[in-house]
């Protein structure tokens, strides 16, 4: 159990936090990486997903992208991108070593939950509401912006939240393949048999992950346009990893 006290010592030594490659700098690096990748994924993925949902087409693609994303190990994809000649292993501005390869990998892994949830959210808007909108003489654009978008917002935001969790986890794994961020503290600690350091890094990464999730949940609650009745909407959205998507997969896949 000495590793636990080693970890505590590492966390309480100020020198480990400050300076070049200190934990604070790595933390900022990883937050910057995650935010950029999430933003790119939202900008690319969300319009496509919502529009496909509006048209009610491409469901097979929109849903299976999540299944494919799950089967490809983040570690393997990161390794392939970093080892390839392009985009290479050199450092990339404020994003640190192997920055560009890492951003590409993070974006790729943020896309599936965003696309699948965005698509399912719009498709599952109640048909009677859609028919009512048609009956009122709304054009396609009006129906999309005034009816489908507000009603699908909670599930869309759950997708973005899941993507955030995914991106943070992937950004940590990046350190296994000489990537930037706090994962470095963990891998350095383990590869140099300084387990206290590795565990200290893990504690920081885990705490920030939980903090991000809590903040995201609060933001979602504040932004949610539909009045909060009870817990069911949240539970439905949270189950992306499980039944809701797989049910939809069955519906579309067969």
């Amino acid at each position: 159990m000495t590793v636990v006290s080693d970890a505590w010592d590492y966390l309480t030594t100020a020198a480990n936090w400050t300076g070049d490659d200190g934990m604070l700098q790595l933390l900022v690096q990883q937050l910057l990486l995650s935010a950029t990748a999430l933003l790119v994924a939202v900008v690319i993925g969300l319009p496509i997903a919502l529009w496909l949902g509006h048209l009610g087409r491409g469901g097979f693609l929109a849903i299976n992208v999540s299944n494919v994303g799950r089967a490809v190990p983040t570690f393997a994809l990161l390794a392939l991108l970093v080892t390839a000649d392009w985009p290479g292993t050199a450092s990339f501005g404020p994003y640190g070593r192997a920055g560009l390869a890492t951003i590409i990998a993070l974006t790729l892994f943020a896309l599936p939950p965003i696309i699948t949830n965005g698509y399912v959210a719009v498709v599952e808007v109640s048909p009677s509401v859609k028919q009512a909108a048609d009956g009122m003489g709304m054009t396609g654009w009006q129906k999309f912006f005034r009816v489908e978008l507000p009603l699908s917002a909670p599930l869309v935001m759950s997708g973005v939240r899941l993507a955030l969790v995914q991106v943070w986890a992937t950004a940590t794994i990046a350190a296994l393949v000489a990537g930037p961020g706090l994962g470095q503290v963990i891998t350095d600690g383990f590869y140099r048999t300084n387990y206290g350091k590795g565990i200290a890094g893990a504690i920081v990464v885990a705490l920030v992950a939980l903090l991000l999730e809590v903040v995201a949940a609060l933001v979602q609650r504040v932004l949610d346009p539909t009045p909060r009745a009870s817990s069911p909407p949240r539970l439905r959205g949270m189950s992306e990893g499980g039944p809701i998507v797989t049910e939809a997969t069955d519906a579309v896949g067969h």
Partner: peptide
């Protein structure tokens, strides 16, 4: 269980090592 899921895998394994 959701909280556990939020923790990145690379951080969860070291936390179990002790």
């Amino acid at each position: 269980t959701t909280a556990i899921y939020t923790i990145p895998s690379l951080a969860l394994l070291p936390l179990l090592v002790p």
